[in-house]
């Protein structure tokens, strides 16, 4: 074959074939993978950039809101929203409310605190403590009951949500009732039962664990 074609022609053919192979290999075994790899790196870099940009936007948004939120945060902090629901403090508020509202009796039962699931609190490594507060009130006038509720909601540490309420006028105010007001056991014309949920937000390490059924 070399005798017919000649060394030069064979060399040219071989050289061209070799060059073709080299260019093919360069294209598909080097440049293509490199381009794909670079595309992946580019996508990753852009993704990273977008994530950082979102974080920056979030931080800037937070800063923009902090002015208003800081006042409210200080207020709820002052209201005891971050306290671990000390029963002693609650007892003082209950006594004060009973004395100042004018209700005749107020029987209060506070259940042990339990952990309440809350995603927002989880984000800040905190947990919500909740306790049921049930109150039975006897009063001469419904206004006293309202005042009692007002005093509780404004002075109780944390947040006291109304879960239920019953207000019942057991007797009409009559001359006989008014005469018996001074007796040792006077008749009670208004009865009320109040159900509240008492909530505060405490650090994660202070709250009972999620699977702990017992309270404080």
């Amino acid at each position: 074959m070399i005798q017919v074609l000649g060394m030069q022609r064979v060399a040219i053919l071989a050289g061209l074939l070799g060059l073709n192979l080299v260019v093919f290999a360069l294209t598909y075994f080097f440049m293509d993978p490199q381009a794909s790899k670079m595309q992946r790196q580019l996508n990753a870099a852009r993704g990273q950039g977008n994530s950082i940009q979102q974080e920056i936007d979030r931080l800037q948004y937070e800063f923009a809101q902090i002015g208003d939120q800081q006042v409210m945060f200080e207020q709820i902090k002052e209201d005891g929203f971050f306290t671990p629901q000390g029963r002693r403090q609650a007892e003082q508020v209950l006594r004060m409310a009973q004395n100042e509202s004018g209700v005749f009796t107020a029987k209060v039962a506070i259940r042990p605190a339990e952990r309440e699931n809350n995603e927002q609190a989880d984000k800040a490594d905190h947990a919500i403590l909740q306790s049921s507060v049930n109150i039975r009130i006897e009063a001469y006038d419904d206004v006293d009951v309202f005042r009692y509720i007002y005093l509780l909601r404004n002075n109780f540490p944390g947040y006291l949500s109304v879960d239920g309420l019953t207000l019942l006028r057991t007797q009409d105010l009559s001359v006989d009732i008014l005469r018996n007001v001074t007796l040792e056991k006077p008749p009670v014309p208004v009865g009320a039962t109040l159900s509240f949920i008492w909530r505060t937000m405490v650090p994660e390490n202070v709250a009972p664990s999620a699977n702990n059924e017992g309270g404080f």
Partner: peptide, 13 residues
């Protein structure tokens, strides 16, 4: 102060 706590507590409240 902790911004996360601030925002979470306000959201909860």
């Amino acid at each position: 102060f902790d911004i996360k706590l601030l925002q979470a507590s306000i959201a909860v409240y």
